[in-house]
């Protein structure tokens, strides 16, 4: 008996806004001018904050910092699709997502300065702390969304991670559990082409990351991650699907234009030429071109934004730097619901 094809699968790619700022009107999501300006402003804020954070780090005023330069559309496009009640499990390079959830800038910077208080968010922010061990937090998103289902809550959960995380076993377990238990979860892989120095073609021999969804009986799609409209549309659709018990994997194709962190030097493993090619696909430039063509943008509008955001961030830096120093006893206080005798004794050692 000859072999026969029993299943065939396709991988879709979604792009709405091209590099010159033209949109495919059939795919353009419903967004009014105000929404589009808000997206632009959040992307600008993310970039200005990122630049400022790098500067602060170089001046010794911030600890190790992971830049998100070039990935702003992935953050803002997806986070813009979230409802206030939806919940987010970020990795550690999702500045734009935190800003979209209205996390105070001074608090966010405090964390990167090495202050745990920076990760104490109010519950209604509906976003979780940074998670450092790559790939391990998708399972928390899985469990959280599972609880949404068990408790019959009508909200969904998003988790962000990078291309490197897809090699971790927990990625597989989270994808598998999510599909098996039909939870309201959206996986967003920021395929920014590098896991520190390892390029994605050495991370996996799969042609796309999106196709990994197929093996779990899940819908997966590759999206132009530097296209804020495509990210918004794909995420919006995925969230709706998620609420019906169908999780999605979105592969956001983007590029980490900065170093992995301030402790990394990416010149060791990639060329300026490559980086410059991606500069031409800059997500903010593309959106600006579109807005300009729709008369949603003017130079003085952007100048004012720059001024306003710089002032806002400077103010936040001041606030962060004048924050009262945390006290020694705090290092013991959050290990358990109540201090154990053992910890009381250690706390009292002087």
């Amino acid at each position: 008996m000859p072999k026969e094809v029993i299943h065939q699968f396709n991988v879709e790619f979604l792009s709405v806004l091209d590099e010159k700022g033209k949109v495919d009107s059939k795919l353009m999501p419903k967004l009014n001018g105000e929404n589009i300006k808000k997206m632009f402003e959040l992307m600008k804020l993310t970039r200005i904050l990122d630049e400022k954070a790098l500067k602060l780090q170089r001046e010794g005023r911030l600890g190790t910092y992971a830049s998100c330069l070039g990935q702003e559309a992935t953050h803002i496009g997806s986070a813009f699709a979230l409802g206030k009640e939806d919940f987010v499990f970020p990795s550690f390079r999702e500045q734009g997502v935190y800003l979209s959830r209205n996390i105070p800038i001074d608090q966010y910077l405090a964390y990167w300065k090495g202050d745990e208080r920076g990760m104490k968010f109010t519950k209604d922010a509906n976003i979780f702390t940074v998670s450092i061990p790559v790939g391990s937090h998708m399972l928390h998103a899985m469990g959280y969304s599972w609880a949404c289902k068990i408790k019959k809550e009508s909200r969904a959960v998003i988790t962000y991670f990078g291309d490197g995380a897809t090699s971790e076993g927990d990625f597989h377990e989270a994808m598998n559990f999510a599909s098996v238990f039909e939870v309201p979860l959206v996986f967003i892989c920021q395929n920014n082409q590098y896991a520190i120095s390892l390029p994605v073609n050495k991370q996996t021999k799969a042609q796309t990351i999106a196709q990994k969804a197929i093996a779990y009986g899940m819908y997966g799609i590759r999206v132009d991650g530097n296209d804020v409209f495509a990210m918004y549309r794909a995420t919006k659709e995925a969230l709706e699907r998620a609420k019906k018990g169908k999780p999605t994997l979105i592969e956001a194709l983007t590029y980490r234009r900065g170093d992995h962190t301030t402790s990394d030097d990416s010149k060791k493993y990639r060329t300026d030429r490559e980086v410059n090619q991606w500069k031409k696909k800059d997500p903010i430039d593309r959106l600006r071109n579109y807005m300009s063509s729709k008369k949603l943008w003017a130079q003085d509008y952007e100048d004012e934004l720059d001024k306003k955001f710089n002032e806002e961030i400077d103010e936040a830096v001041k606030k962060m730097e004048s924050l009262e120093a945390p006290k020694r006893e705090e290092i013991f206080n959050y290990m358990y619901s109540e201090l154990t005798d053992n910890l009381k004794e250690q706390q009292n050692e002087k």
């Binding site: 919940f87 399972l139 928390h140 469990g143 959280y144 408790k151 927990d170 989270a174 598998n176």
Partner: peptide, 18 residues
């Protein structure tokens, strides 16, 4: 659950968080 211990405990963390 599927046969995956990290998945079991990792999901449990998420269940607890919610």
């Amino acid at each position: 659950t599927p046969l995956a211990e990290s998945g079991i405990v990792g999901s449990s963390i998420g269940l607890a968080l919610n």
